[in-house]
Amino acid sequence: LEELEQFARTFKQRRIKLGFTQGDVGLAMGKLYGNDFSQTTISRFEALNLSFKNMCKLKPLLEKWLNDAE
């Protein structure tokens, strides 16, 4: 759980530094990986307001997006 919290904080910082909005991330993930995510989902991930199971599902996709975006 602590690792997920740390990743969520780091993800938000890096996303902002790269100049992407939460909506940009959701749209890009849909185009790149075929998984559409709303701005609300990205927001809830960053705020740790998703279930642990959903956080675990999203983490690898967000890590991949972040690596591809950098």
Score class of each variant (00 low, 15 high):
residue 3 E to H: 13
residue 61 L to E: 08
residue 34 G to H: 12
residue 40 T to P: 08
residue 43 S to H: 11
residue 58 L to D: 02
residue 61 L to C: 14
residue 60 P to L: 05
residue 54 N to C: 04
residue 17 K to Y: 06
residue 24 D to R: 04
residue 19 G to W: 00
residue 20 F to N: 02
residue 69 A to F: 04
residue 27 L to K: 15
residue 16 I to M: 09
residue 26 G to T: 12
residue 47 A to H: 05
residue 53 K to I: 08
residue 13 Q to K: 11
residue 26 G to M: 06
residue 41 T to W: 12
residue 51 S to R: 07
residue 55 M to Y: 06
residue 38 S to I: 06
residue 25 V to A: 13
residue 62 L to G: 01
residue 14 R to T: 14
residue 31 K to M: 05
residue 39 Q to N: 03
residue 39 Q to R: 12
residue 15 R to F: 00
residue 59 K to D: 00
residue 8 A to V: 09
residue 27 L to C: 09
residue 24 D to W: 03
residue 50 L to T: 10
residue 57 K to N: 06
residue 20 F to T: 03
residue 4 L to S: 03
residue 2 E to S: 09
residue 42 I to D: 01
residue 65 W to F: 10
residue 11 F to P: 00
residue 54 N to S: 15
residue 25 V to C: 04
residue 58 L to R: 03
residue 62 L to S: 01
residue 52 F to N: 08
residue 11 F to V: 03
residue 23 G to D: 09
residue 62 L to P: 00
residue 43 S to D: 10
residue 10 T to P: 00
residue 38 S to T: 13
residue 22 Q to G: 04
residue 59 K to N: 02
residue 9 R to K: 13
residue 70 E to T: 07
residue 23 G to P: 06
residue 70 E to M: 08
residue 40 T to D: 14
residue 24 D to P: 00
residue 27 L to Y: 14
residue 62 L to R: 00
residue 54 N to Y: 15
residue 25 V to W: 01
residue 64 K to A: 15
residue 4 L to H: 15
residue 26 G to R: 05
residue 28 A to G: 07
residue 1 L to T: 14
residue 16 I to P: 01
residue 39 Q to I: 12
residue 65 W to A: 02
residue 1 L to W: 10
residue 51 S to V: 02
residue 59 K to G: 08
residue 22 Q to T: 10
residue 66 L to K: 00
residue 69 A to N: 15
residue 19 G to T: 02
residue 27 L to F: 11
residue 61 L to T: 14
residue 64 K to C: 06
residue 52 F to R: 14
residue 24 D to A: 08
residue 44 R to V: 02
residue 57 K to P: 02
residue 23 G to M: 13
residue 50 L to V: 11
residue 41 T to L: 11
residue 19 G to N: 12
residue 43 S to A: 13
residue 27 L to P: 02
residue 45 F to A: 01
residue 17 K to I: 08
residue 54 N to E: 15
residue 69 A to Y: 06
residue 15 R to C: 01
residue 49 N to V: 07
residue 35 N to K: 08
residue 52 F to C: 09
residue 11 F to D: 02
residue 68 D to R: 12
residue 60 P to I: 15
residue 22 Q to R: 06
residue 38 S to L: 05
residue 68 D to N: 14
residue 53 K to V: 12
residue 31 K to F: 03
residue 56 C to T: 15
residue 34 G to M: 04
residue 7 F to M: 04
residue 34 G to I: 03
residue 64 K to R: 10
residue 26 G to L: 09
residue 6 Q to L: 09
residue 37 F to K: 02
residue 55 M to R: 02
residue 48 L to R: 12
residue 35 N to F: 11
residue 20 F to H: 11
residue 34 G to S: 09
residue 65 W to K: 01
residue 37 F to E: 03
residue 21 T to M: 03
residue 61 L to I: 05
residue 9 R to P: 02
residue 36 D to R: 11
residue 61 L to Y: 08
residue 37 F to M: 12
residue 44 R to G: 14
residue 36 D to N: 09
residue 13 Q to H: 07
residue 19 G to L: 03
residue 8 A to P: 02
residue 36 D to E: 12
residue 32 L to R: 12
residue 41 T to Q: 09
residue 65 W to C: 03
